[in-house]
Amino acid sequence: MIELENVTFNFSDKGILRDACFHMDDGEFIGILGPNGGGKSTFLNLVLGLLKPQKGSIKVSDANISYISQTTSLNDSSFPATVEEVVGLGLIGNKPKLFLSKAEKSRIKEVLIELGIYELRKKLVSELSGGQAQRVKVAKALVNNPSLVILDEPDSGMDEASHHALIHIVNDLHKKKVSILFVSHHPHDLEEADRVYFIEGGNISEHEIHECQEHHHHVAI
């Protein structure tokens, strides 16, 4: 599904990744851990096609990818958009669309109910709490029934309950054979992961989860 072969990217202002090799199969749950500035975001941006590698190759199979980004976007604080409008953006792709179909509208309703934010559907995203806003992002990512979900530290600004709900959703998706690539700074978020990679100083290496927990603890100290 995702294959990186000897990928190098080195721009001081955009991040660093050195000679990275990585693979991920269909239906796998891969966790990514590492300190801030270690190269996690660079890795994700390369996988997402937002950056082009200077060396090496990246193959991402033609999957239906959903991406839950790290921070609530700059726009969320003032953007005039309702919860259901933002969730509907998850259904917008490369083809122009005059209106959302009846089936698409009912899918939006379904996912809003699933995430417990149906009552908020007419509210502006700028009026939501951090936790509610992140639930909207998750709903936007799930609305098009993705085959691969990429999460970049999605718990920023989330309260405890929303965080637990998110981990529960991720684990559920994995059980339904949806591929998960989860970048987190909490090793315990990745307990159900099939494999865990650690990225530090632009280097990526595969580890057992308990090694990462120890390393993470060491880095945190």
Binding site: L48, L50, I65, S66, S69, S73, I92
Partner: peptide
């Protein structure tokens, strides 16, 4: 709303 997310969705 989010140029990066839109790019990911092609």
């Amino acid at each position: 709303y989010s140029e990066n997310e839109a790019k990911v969705r092609k």
